[in-house]
C-alpha cells in the first residue's frame, strides 16, 4: 500500500434492522485534500462517517487508511468532550508519545488549533462552543490521523465563530497536508472548504467531482435542487430578483 494511495471506500452498506441507511456506497478521498459530503437529514452522511470511523458495523471495504487511523470531530461541542476530564488529559489520551513528553505535545497541539497552552488545565465547561470544537480537533490530530472526518462541526456554532473554525481547518490542511472528509448540510460552507464534493441522498451517492464542476455545472437534478435552495447574499442580485427567488 502506497502512502499516497487515496482512501477508497467501496461498496459500503449500513443497515439498521430492515432499513438501509447507506446503500453500496463507493467514494474516493484523495490524500492531502478535503472532500465534502453534502446531503439533507436522513441522507445517511453521518452514518457513513461513523461506519468509516469504525463506530458502526458495516459491510464493504475501506482501503488506503490503516485501521484505527481515522479520527472524527462531531457536531455538538457540549457532548464531544468528557465534562470530567481536563482539556490536557482529553488531548493526551490520543497521543502516542512517552509520558514525559506528553505535556509538551499537548501544548504543541493546543497552539496548532490557536489556543493558549495554558488551557490544558481547564475543563470543557470553562470553554465556549468554538473553543471546545478546537480542542476536539486537537484531540483528533493528536493521534496522527490518516483521515480526519469532520461531521457538521460548525452547525451548532454562531456565524462569527463558524468562520474562525473554518479558517482553522483550511490552515491545518495547508500546514499538515491533512486528508479530510468534511460533512455538512451547508453547500456554501462545503464550497468554501473543500476541493471535491460528493452529494448523498437516501443512502446513495448522487453525484461527485471537483467542487467547481459539481457546483458550477451540476449534472444531477437533485444537486441542482439543492444548489437552488441555498440562500444567497449576492451583491449582484437586485431586489426584484431576490424576492422572485422565494416566490
Amino acid at each position: 500500500m502506497n502512502i499516497n494511495d487515496p482512501v477508497n471506500i467501496s461498496g459500503l452498506t449500513v443497515r439498521f434492522g430492515s432499513r438501509t441507511a447507506v446503500d453500496r456506497l463507493s467514494l474516493e478521498v484523495p490524500k492531502g485534500s478535503t472532500t465534502g459530503l453534502v446531503g439533507e437529514s436522513g441522507s445517511g452522511k453521518s452514518t457513513l462517517a461513523r461506519a468509516v470511523a469504525g463506530l458502526l458495523p458495516c459491510r464493504g471495504t475501506v482501503t488506503g487508511v490503516a485501521p484505527g487511523r481515522v479520527q472524527m470531530v462531531f457536531q455538538d461541542p457540549s457532548s464531544s468532550l468528557d465534562p470530567r476530564m481536563s482539556i490536557g488529559d482529553a488531548i493526551a489520551e490520543g497521543t502516542r508519545v512517552p509520558r514525559a513528553r506528553r505535556a509538551a505535545e499537548v501544548g504543541r497541539l493546543l497552539e496548532l488549533v490557536a489556543l493558549p497552552a495554558g488551557y490544558a488545565g481547564k475543563y470543557p465547561r470553562e470553554l465556549s462552543g468554538g473553543q471546545c470544537q478546537r480542542v476536539a480537533i486537537a484531540r483528533a490530530l493528536a493521534a496522527g490521523p490518516e483521515l480526519l472526518i469532520a461531521d457538521e462541526i460548525t452547525s451548532a456554532l454562531d456565524v462569527s465563530v463558524q468562520g474562525a473554525v473554518l479558517n482553522l481547518l483550511r490552515e491545518l490542511r495547508g500546514e499538515l497536508g491533512l486528508t479530510m472528509l468534511f460533512i455538512s448540510h451547508n453547500l456554501a460552507v462545503v464550497r468554501y472548504v473543500c476541493d471535491a464534493v460528493a452529494v448523498m441522498r437516501h443512502g446513495r451517492l448522487v453525484e461527485s467531482g471537483p467542487v467547481q464542476d459539481v457546483i458550477g455545472a451540476p449534472r444531477h437534478a437533485y444537486t441542482r435542487a439543492l444548489l437552488d435552495a441555498v440562500p444567497r447574499l449576492s451583491p449582484a442580485a437586485s431586489d426584484t430578483e431576490r424576492v422572485r427567488r422565494v416566490r
Binding site: V159, S160, Q162, G163, A164, L166, N167, R170, L187, A188, V189, R191, Y192, I215, L227, V230, P231, R232, L233, S234, A236
Partner: peptide, 18 residues
C-alpha cells in the same frame, strides 16, 4: 457577520472575516 458567512460567491482563496 456578512464577511464571516461563506456563500456561493465567497472568494475561496481568502480567509473569512472573524
Amino acid at each position: 457577520l456578512v464577511g464571516s458567512l461563506p456563500d456561493m460567491d465567497t472568494d475561496r482563496s481568502r480567509p473569512l472575516t472573524t
